[in-house]
């Protein structure tokens, strides 16, 4: 295999695997930046995957070739609504945010499987007949070297994910809304004094994370899994959470981390065909993202500084 072929066989899958992680991680950045820990990303992705698949199966005749796009949009809305539960618990009821996130994970999987059995009479749904397909981007895919590497045989959803990362960065760092959201996560009392509604900001942030995780989960379901069962989403949400932290709570950093994780994942899958890598036991590539996250946290790869007020409910009037 030539070098270019190897590169092509790595980069394609890497971007393809990381797209759902990028989307979910950006949502995670919003939630955590507002001061709400979101361990529930996993459950929100489960919800997104479930809704995406079920909607796709049900409305294929109505929407035809647009079905996958409508499906991920609907999954986004439903997951955003579902995430309100986490917001109510952690903002209004002042619950431990990690615990509430754990409850979200249990609830989403339980609900998804319960409804799957209810509606399909078995543990998994049928395979969708109209998932996303890979395409060559017109014109761009004709560019030598870059074309075959980045623009042919790709899912359009991958570009959507990358675009969202830049949108997320712009919103968080270049708009008044983003500034307010970050201030609520750093020093809620100061924000409150300046007339920012802390609770509302946090509700919005959690719902954004729900929407993005729903998008991520449904994109995963409609590009990779193609049906819904108990093993559709196994750890992608936690991986996204790792990307949030590895990316230092920054949308573009999270995207970079997610791309790296996707890269490690695609390496572990195609490693048998690549010289040098085929001697590395697969397990090292499998655990690489997790080990690297721990190293990043331990400050080996630059110190990661969490938002100051993360994990603490804001109680008006307390010091």
């Amino acid at each position: 295999m030539g070098f270019l072929d190897i590169l092509q066989s790595i980069i394609g899958p890497a971007i393809f695997f990381s797209a759902p992680l990028i989307l979910t991680a950006i949502g995670g950045v919003f939630s955590e930046r507002s001061g709400v820990v979101n361990i529930g990303l996993e459950g929100l992705m489960v919800m997104g995957a479930f809704v995406g698949i079920v909607f796709n199966l049900t409305f294929i005749d109505t929407f035809g070739s647009w079905t996958p796009w409508v499906s991920i949009f609907v999954a986004m809305i439903i997951s955003a609504i579902f995430s309100i539960i986490h917001a109510i618990a952690s903002v209004t009821f002042r619950a431990d945010q990690v615990v509430s996130g754990v409850a979200i994970n249990f609830l989403a999987l339980g609900l998804g499987l319960f409804l799957t059995k209810q509606w399909y009479g078995k543990g998994q749904t049928d395979m969708v007949s109209r998932p996303f397909y890979t395409t060559d981007v017109p014109l761009l895919s004709d560019i030598p070297i870059i074309g075959p590497l980045f623009f042919s045989g790709m899912y359009l959803t991958s570009y959507v994910a990358i675009a969202f990362a830049f949108v997320g960065w712009y919103v968080l760092y270049k708009t008044p809304f983003g500034l307010r959201l970050r201030s609520v996560g750093e020093h809620p009392m100061a924000a409150d004094t300046n007339g920012i509604n802390v609770s509302r900001m946090r509700y919005v942030a959690v719902m954004i994370s729900g929407a993005m995780a729903g998008l991520g989960g449904s994109v995963f379901a409609l590009t990779i899994a193609l049906n819904f069962s108990h093993s559709t989403i196994v750890g992608q949400g936690f991986m996204s959470l790792a990307a949030v932290i590895f990316g230092k709570w920054h949308p573009l950093g999270a995207m970079g981390a997610a791309l790296f994780f996707g890269f490690a994942q695609s390496l572990s899958i195609i490693s048998s065909g690549v010289p040098l890598l085929q001697d590395v036991p697969q397990v090292f590539l499998l655990i690489a993202p997790y080990v690297l996250t721990i190293l990043a946290l331990a400050g080996v790869i630059g110190r990661a500084e969490a938002p100051k007020a993360i994990g603490t409910p804001y109680i008006k009037g307390s010091r």
């Binding site: 539960i85 109510i88 618990a89 009821f93 002042r94 619950a95 431990d96 615990v99 509430s100 754990v102 409850a103 979200i104 249990f106 609830l107 999987l109 339980g110 609900l111 499987l113 319960f114 059995k117 209810q118």
Partner: peptide, 22 residues
């Protein structure tokens, strides 16, 4: 009734304990 009903019940129990403030 699908067995997963119990997972929903457990999730709700965690949720209520966590929200014990209410």
């Amino acid at each position: 009734v699908p067995t997963e009903l119990v997972d929903i019940v457990i999730a709700m129990i965690i949720f209520f304990v966590a929200s014990s403030y209410m």
